[in-house]
Design a protein around this nucleic acid. Structure first.
Lengths: 349, 349
DNA sequence: AATTGTTTTGCAAATGTTTTCATTTTTCGC
DNA sequence: GCGAAAAATGAAAACATTTGCAAAACAATT
């Protein structure tokens, strides 16, 4: 009930509780070192004064800032929201606060954001994917901040990474289509720069397709975060230009959604007239009617693992430092793909 | 080429540039006060040493932390990702870094997060929706941190808010269905606690329905972030139990998506056999085939406006303090609703 | 060349904590 | 009750900045 007008600091709390600032500090950071009775007094004072401790001050003192920075291309997309959510939950559980920033697939922007994070003295930083500027790598090395790449895995990545092998995902998808007998397969992919996920999936797909099927690729130019709308347009253009492929492989589920809408618009039935395959298995796509055939990339697991690993590395719980991990991708054959029956135009259910 | 091993501080930069620390500080914060030549020297030193300035230290000094905290129920959902993204972009543009945290529709958790933000001395805080614990309001008042509520608007809200009138959204949606001649309308809504959006929409819908149509409501219990899957299940249960409504109003687009899948699964055609209406107009739903009829809540605009308003309030650009704003909702009649065919049931169980 | 007015720059204090070390208080075995 | 060991507390230095004030440098008038 004292002068709680002035912003309370640890000293006013100490005064109010009739102890020294050191003791107040200790009761926060090493409670076992202060006598229960004293702790009670202090807690009361804190309560009375509405004191909120100042992380900035402790950060300045060399203590950890208790923050972790996460950089993603965009939040506005089913693709990343699941990793973000699970990553956030994991670091939260470990007591960290999450700084988040989006770069819209612009790697120079990504560097700027990483720098901003460093200014805030984040205890760790997570980057999306494997493609980054040299400047970014250097910054991280020089500042000696624990860093991790999430979403993609590669054994030769410059930084520890936890994610899926996107090349493998591309292969798995194509293998599924080939196994179903498809030979005339079209691909729909977004721009590749600054997007190793798409790039690697495409590489994997093309490797597997080599010599197998005839391929056309539809793309679009805008570097904007890919959307269902753009994908639908691209697919529509592709499908409107003969010959009609028997199957389409899309870089991810969102694009597949667009392709399916395009097919519907053109009166093509999926999967009777056209098989459509996604990559990702994001929430909601299994419930589609028919359900989307896709390659599952366990986003929740990746985010969670990455969050836990990074937190652990920071608190020193992991002796060996940040570990890499490849989480497996799994084929989810569902309703939007079916065997190529030689001639794709027979209907009659 | 000096000892850039030790983490460089402003003093080492000063030494390297042969000026005083004050001057280095000034060249960051008031560049116009330092001679261009000196600035050059300093910049060089910064470059050589790889110095990254320490926000914690300046925060401690009473300067702003240059961070803004955002609390949302969940990231993992098309519903919020658009606001988050645009809010993030807006505060970024104003030079702030975003702290983000999710509470999973748990208001006690929300309070804890707000507190964590205060410890980090955020310059401003944004909360989702209008329902919060008293403790949360008190904390904000007591810490005197600029705060804003986003997503929902209400003239009597306890804190400034920028958002849509969700009650109105519910009304608009129902009016559309009534205008099309529907009288047997079912509702699908998620749990209401801690979720004023859903609550207000439902209230609006029920007000407008009063005396007009017969209504059944499907719900589900889990407080988990609502998903397409849960919505689909709920819709399926509802549609499998006669009598069949002629239209369904869903609390949001994601749920509508689920309802449409449920209809497809049961062999019901939308909109021929059943009209489906969403609320939100989130990205991707306009591209559906048929396109989703919904009530547009301009999420981008809300996020952007809120981000700008909060930033401005912090930097003192707005003399009057934080303004409230109601962004209008607009009916988007599209393909999933159509006039009710002939006979509609009156009265019911 | 002295005077004045302006730019630039430096000094030192201040910011809110944590931590090491020393000091005081408590406990406990006798 | 005594002394030693253990537990609890306090004093002061340290952390990396910013800023008010004053000194120094420079330029423009006489």
């Amino acid at each position: 009930m004292k002068k709680q007008q002035d912003k309370a600091d640890i000293i006013s709390v100490a005064r109010q509780a009739k102890v020294s600032p050191s003791t107040v500090s200790r009761s926060y950071n090493h409670p076992e070192l202060v006598k229960p009775a004293t702790r009670k007094k202090i807690e009361k004072a804190i309560q009375d004064l509405g004191y909120v401790r100042n992380r900035a001050a402790q950060t300045m003192h060399g203590k950890r800032s208790a923050t972790i920075g996460l950089v993603v291309p965009t939040v506005n997309n089913a693709i990343f929201s699941e990793v973000i959510q699970s990553f956030s939950e994991a670091v939260d559980k470990a007591g960290f606060t999450l700084l988040i920033a989006t770069h819209g697939f612009d790697l120079a922007q990504e560097y700027a954001l990483a720098r901003k994070f460093m200014e805030h003295r984040v205890d760790g930083v997570a980057l999306t994917g494997l493609d980054h500027l040299d400047a970014t790598y250097n910054l991280i090395a020089q500042q000696q901040v624990p860093a991790i790449q999430i979403w993609s895995y590669a054994s030769d990545a410059r930084l520890p990474c936890i994610g899926a092998d996107n090349r493998e995902a591309g292969r798995v998808a194509v293998r599924h289509l080939l196994a179903l007998g498809h030979r005339d397969i079209a691909l729909i992919f977004p721009p590749l720069e600054g997007n190793d996920r798409a790039r690697l999936r495409l590489e994997g797909a093309e490797e597997e397709l080599a010599g197998a099927g005839v391929t056309r690729i539809a793309r679009w130019q805008e570097q904007a975060p890919y959307s269902v709308g753009q994908a639908k347009d691209a697919a529509e253009r592709l499908l409107a230009t003969p010959p009609l492929p028997s199957a389409i492989l899309c870089a991810n589920d969102v694009i597949a959604q667009g392709a399916i809408y395009a097919a519907a618009k053109l009166g093509l039935r999926v999967p009777e007239d056209l098989s459509v395959m996604g990559i990702g298995d994001f929430p909601g796509f299994a419930e589609m009617e028919p359900a989307l055939s896709t390659v599952r990339i366990p986003a929740r697991r990746i985010g969670e693992k990455a969050g836990e690993a990074l937190s652990a590395a920071i608190t020193g719980a992991t002796p060996g430092g940040l570990a890499r991990a490849r989480v497996p991708v799994t084929l989810m054959p569902r309703g939007t793909t079916r065997p190529a029956t030689g001639q794709s135009r027979t209907g009659s259910d």
